[in-house]
Structures are given as C-alpha cells and as structure tokens.
C-alpha cells in the first residue's frame, strides 16, 4: 500500500513535537510511505489565479513542495494528514498545502449528492486519515472539524475520512498505534519484513 503523509512542522509546542515524533516512531519502518514534514515557509499561499485549471491544466504555477505532495497523493492508496486544530480548522501550514490541491479537480461542475461539486480529474482516489491535535479541543471545534473533513471528502469524492482527535500524549500513542495496525492489515507488502 502506497501512502502519503503530511505533518505540520511549524508548531513547536510540546504536544506537536510529541505527535510528530510518535507518528514517525510508529510508521518509520514502513517503506511505502512518502513523508512530508512541511513548514509554513516552504509553501506560498494559493493566490486563486485558477491557472491550474485554465492555463496549465492539472498543474499549479507555483513550483514548490506541494507539487510533489500532490503527485504522490494522487498515486497513493492512503493519504494521512496530521494537523494542529485551529478554531475547528486545519492549521495555517496544512491549509496552505490543501489550498494548492485544487488541480486534483477539474474546473467543471456536476451534480453529486444533490449538490453542485467539481468533476474529478483522476479516477483513483486515496483513502483519507486525518489526525487533529491540540491540548484543548472544544466540542464545537470537534464538530466543525468533522463536518469540514467530511465536506472535503465529498468534494474529492472520497468515502468519509477516518478522523482522530488527540489532546495528550496518550491519545497520540493510541492514534499512531491504530494507524500502524491499518498498515499491518494491508497484504500488499507495505510493511518491511
């Protein structure tokens, strides 16, 4: 199983460092993972030019790390995103990555689940796991993030994502263990011997 993982390296609080270290510690032996530890300064914000739809179809005109992440993501079976939870949203860094993913879609609209959504550019779509963490997460923030992640999945025509929330080190270890088991279930040779 081919997987792409993005982690936010911009946050340097205790939980963020523990989260990133734990995820790495649990999954580093898996050889089919493309890791991206992204820092905010690695990515320029999307400027909404739509050139990825009408000038260089399928490609963002900014050639940065998101170009490689995007290529790996569309060729993956699993996309994992770990993000600090900010007001019920992804962190600024992770949002910068996600904002650059619109060329994965076509500009053209279609009806899906009774609503207008974009058509898909690629037939293959990865399964999605999202880990949101913060030392304090309110119920409103949790519900907002669940609804947001589900809306993202709907727009990408992906089945509902698996969403994990972590507020402490115990949660981080449990979540990393669950994700590792996910790879262990895979019989396509994701784990090294």
């Amino acid at each position: 199983m081919q997987a792409t993982i993005i982690c936010d390296k911009s946050s340097d609080n205790v939980l963020a460092n523990f989260m990133n270290t734990t995820i790495h510690g649990h999954l580093s032996e898996i050889q089919t993972i493309s890791w991206y530890d992204v820092h905010k300064d690695d990515i320029r914000p999307c400027i909404g030019c739509f050139n990825c739809w009408i000038k260089t179809p399928g490609k963002c005109i900014m050639n940065d790390i998101t170009t490689i992440i995007y290529k790996d993501m569309i060729n993956s079976d699993l996309f994992i995103c770990t993000t600090p939870l900010l007001y019920g949203s992804y962190s600024v860094t992770i949002k910068r990555v996600l904002d650059h993913l619109i060329p994965i879609l076509l500009p053209f609209f279609t009806m899906s689940h009774g609503e207008v959504h974009h058509k898909q550019r690629y037939a293959k779509r990865p399964k999605m796991i999202i880990v949101a963490y913060n030392e304090s997460i309110s119920d409103d923030e949790k519900q907002t993030f669940i609804a947001l992640a589900r809306a993202n999945a709907l727009n990408l025509n992906i089945n509902d994502p698996e969403i994990y929330f972590c507020t402490n080190e115990k949660d981080a270890i449990e979540t990393a263990t669950k994700i590792k088991k996910y790879f262990a279930k895979d019989n396509t040779g994701g784990l090294s011997s």
Binding site: P45, S89, R96, L98, D99, L101
Partner: peptide, 12 residues
Amino acid sequence: LYIDSLPSSLLE
C-alpha cells in the same frame, strides 16, 4: 471559500 473553509492567508 477555499477547500470548504478559510483561505490559508486569511487564517494566518
């Protein structure tokens, strides 16, 4: 609306 939420620059 960017990816169902706020543009990253605004969030920042």
